[in-house]
Design a protein around this nucleic acid. Sequence first.
DNA 1: ATTTCCAGCATACTTTTAGTAAGTGCAAAA
DNA 2: TTTTGCACTTACTAAAAGTATGCTGGAAAT
Lengths: 118, 118
Amino acid sequence: MNKNAKEHAPSSESSCNAYRLAIEFIGKRWTGIIIYQLFEGPKRYHELLNAIDGISDRLLSERLKDLEQEGLLRKHVIADAPKKVEYELTPPGYEFIEVFKAIMDWAEKKEAYLNELM
Amino acid sequence: MNKNAKEHAPSSESSCNAYRLAIEFIGKRWTGIIIYQLFEGPKRYHELLNAIDGISDRLLSERLKDLEQEGLLRKHVIADAPKKVEYELTPPGYEFIEVFKAIMDWAEKKEAYLNELM
DNA sequence: ATTTCCAGCATACTTTTAGTAAGTGCAAAA
DNA sequence: TTTTGCACTTACTAAAAGTATGCTGGAAAT
């Protein structure tokens, strides 16, 4: 008796599509942390790999590609010899700091509130 | 040659653990949308099920349980006869609106910026 | 001459998450 | 008396995400 999954198409369109799309992207593991690492300025591949504890190179590559595609960062090849590549946030990439802060603030408040109850 | 995943333990502890935990939770599908639906006030199970386009009853139950466990909502059984249950946000649940807004704002700005480029 | 560094890619594999289908118990309506 | 609504649960499948490992190829260091 549960078949409401896209039965007769959208109809309501209620549930914030913009939010869904955004959260689907930023909700992936590492995405936000990579952006966070780049707030300070451009970094190279191995700098990111070393800075981010626990990430694998495959995932780092994948996320960097995603982020580039979404227009949140740009890739600069600065040398071919010993290959050197830098990753730099675009303006929307930098603006993500607002989301980052909002999440941190909320998490903190939430913890504070829950600790108060005990 | 890639084994940096938890090689010799944490050491750096750089990468914002609070953020990671929070995003892992709110990044799950439907979580934010359920909270959003409850901003207006308490709702019952089937109201949520109808309001949220595409969610299945199983996922709704699961998310409601997660949200309760995280202290973001409270469940009120208001009748056993024809079973009636209401879900209501707690203060941290309501405060999530700041995160929601930040994400929406960011997504909008990002779109605007990217459209400008074309 | 061999190893290391750099920025990855390819492949196979495991784990996690989402989605589907069906069933539960009880009460009231048809 | 069979059906319907409510608020779920259980079992299962499919898809997405993440992990592990090995490899590339040129240049510089040992």
